[in-house]
């Protein structure tokens, strides 16, 4: 009875929740990078309500400009806003622990023979699933993140630049600077159109 009470209290603690949430994301994060966005949407926006869609987009664009993987950056930032610096560290640990556990076990168990046929098939299936999930994320983010016709101009220009082979960091930095310049020049008008 008493131990149940203690456990209940521990699991309600924000740092424990941060760790567990990101641990869950880490364990099911296949394909790396953008593939984690559907998982983050579900866990952080829909379930825990820690951030909204706009904040998720901010975190992603910020992660691209700072060193390291998107997963760790997102975990650190959200952890920090919810549970100070310790929260940031704990959330990042949650993302790292699955890699450590799974790869260490595979290193000693599978050794050099990890090119199995079944794993390959399962992974191809997962990749098909990732495409579908990313499509849905793009759709929901599109509905919340696009405001005013200038958003569509930015969106199309960025997509065009990427298709022409521009580096993502260059695209983001250019986008941010032009946002600033437009605000500086047409401050009031664009504010009404709320870019």
């Amino acid at each position: 009875m008493e131990s149940k009470l203690v456990f209940g209290r521990i699991s309600e603690h924000i740092h424990v929740q941060l760790f567990l949430s990101f641990l869950k994301v880490g364990f099911f994060m296949f394909g790396g990078g953008y593939a984690m966005i559907p998982l983050l949407e579900r866990e952080l926006i829909e379930k825990k309500k820690w951030i909204d869609k706009g904040e998720l987009l901010e975190i992603i664009s910020f992660s691209q400009m700072t060193p390291g993987t998107i997963a760790i950056n997102a975990a650190t930032h959200i952890g920090n806003t919810k549970g100070k610096a310790l929260g940031g560290v704990v959330a990042s640990l949650g993302i790292i622990v699955p890699s450590l556990l799974i790869i260490t076990i595979l290193y000693y168990v599978a050794g050099n023979h990890f090119e199995s046929d079944i794993v390959q098939k399962a992974f191809t299936g997962i990749r098909a699933c990732l495409v579908v999930m990313i499509c849905r994320s793009v759709y929901t983010l599109f509905r919340s993140g696009m405001r005013g016709s200038i958003s569509y101009v930015f969106f199309l220009l960025a997509l065009l630049a990427l298709f022409c082979g521009a580096h993502p960091i260059l695209v983001i930095v250019t986008g941010g600077i032009s946002g600033f310049v437009i605000w500086k020049w047409f401050g009031h008008r664009t504010k009404k159109a709320s870019i």
Partner: peptide
Amino acid sequence: AVFGSLKPVTIALIM
């Protein structure tokens, strides 16, 4: 202002 323009750019990156 900066993030207002970064949002559509980031959606393009994800897409």
